[in-house]
Simulated assay, not measured.
Amino acid sequence: MRSLFIAFAAVSLFVSCNQNKQSENDSGNKNILPKRTQKDSIEAVAVKALRALKEKDYKIFASFFHPVDGVRFSPYGFIDPTHKHVLAKDFLEAIDKNWTLTWGHFDGSGEAIKMKVRPYIERFIYNADYLNAPKKSYDAFIGQGNTINNLQESYPQLHYTEYYFKGFDEKYKGLDWTSLRFVFKKNGDAYYLVAVIHDQWTT
Rank of each mutant, 00 (worst) to 15 (best):
L33D: 10
K39W: 01
K39A: 11
S41Y: 00
A46C: 02
A46P: 03
A49V: 09
R51S: 14
A52Y: 11
K54A: 08
E55A: 14
D57K: 07
K59G: 11
K59L: 05
S63Q: 10
S63V: 00
S63K: 12
F65E: 04
H66P: 05
D69N: 12
D69P: 00
G70A: 03
P75W: 02
P75V: 02
F78Q: 13
D80L: 01
P81R: 06
T82Y: 04
K84G: 01
H85Y: 00
V86F: 01
L87R: 12
A88V: 02
K89W: 05
D90L: 06
I95M: 09
K97M: 07
N98Y: 11
N98K: 15
W99H: 14
T102I: 12
W103L: 08
W103H: 06
H105D: 13
H105M: 12
F106S: 10
F106E: 15
D107T: 10
D107K: 11
G108R: 10
S109G: 10
S109N: 11
S109A: 08
G110M: 14
G110D: 12
V117Y: 09
P119F: 08
I121P: 07
Y126K: 05
Y126E: 05
Y126F: 12
Y126A: 06
A128I: 03
P134A: 09
K135H: 13
S137F: 05
S137N: 04
S137A: 14
S137D: 04
Y138H: 05
Y138M: 03
F141D: 10
F141C: 01
G143I: 01
Q144C: 03
G145V: 04
I148A: 12
Q152I: 11
S154N: 09
Q157R: 13
Y160N: 06
T161H: 11
T161M: 11
T161N: 09
T161Q: 10
E162C: 06
Y163M: 04
Y164P: 04
Y164G: 03
Y164N: 08
